[in-house]
Amino acid sequence: MTGRRLVRPVLIAAGLLALWEAAVWLNSIPHYILPPPSLVVLEFIDRGDLLAEHALWTTIEIALGLVAGVSLGSAVALLMARFAALRAWGVPLVVVSQAVPVFAIAPLLVLWLGYGIASKIAMAVLVIFFPVASAFLDGLRRVDPGWLDLARLMGASPAAVLFQIRLPAALPAFASGVRVAAAVAPIGAVIGEWVGASAGLGYLMMQQLARGQTALAFAALVVLAAIGVALYFLVDALLRRAMPWIPQQS
């Protein structure tokens, strides 16, 4: 079954790549404008170690950014769920923080935090924090009122209600937030690398494009996409495992 379902996307991909290859050769497009897929594959073979080195760097940035961003977003959501005053003051602040385009602050972050990994993690945290905090807070607040009635009559403290009822009930919403975060985390890291860095796939792309090594830039792009997809599925699998009581959609 799975094998048969894979046939169509694989055929489509192969067809598109063949078209691309043919278009480049037939129209004599210069390879620094659009490299044919075959040249991109060759770059993987020739420069695999270089790609791996930069991919590792970017992966570390994304992973650390994801951990820090999810932690920060969760902490903010929990505090806001627990303290109404914090929610009243905090929500507008969070929304405004999202109105500022990440691209616009990227140079500032590099200025403040340097060319190293800190500015990339900060960038990733900025794009990850919001989807996690908003989805989680939503989940924490949208709880079956019957559970809250029950807890109240059982004499539960506000902290017990938060951690034993609201928190587990909000895990599906939290998971949605984290999935979005996993999808956008590479954006944060790569923007950081574009603005100023000495390593990473984003840095490699900028460097090779400037030198007309477009095929290598494409190869970096492919690796970046692969990291994004792998990250998404890894996070998705972990979240499903953490919530066995949530019915799975087939």
Binding site: L150, M154, Q164
Partner: peptide
Amino acid sequence: LPWLNVLDNATLGARLR
């Protein structure tokens, strides 16, 4: 509570307190 088993649900009051 869907994340607690039968016994833990039955003893929810003491758990919450």
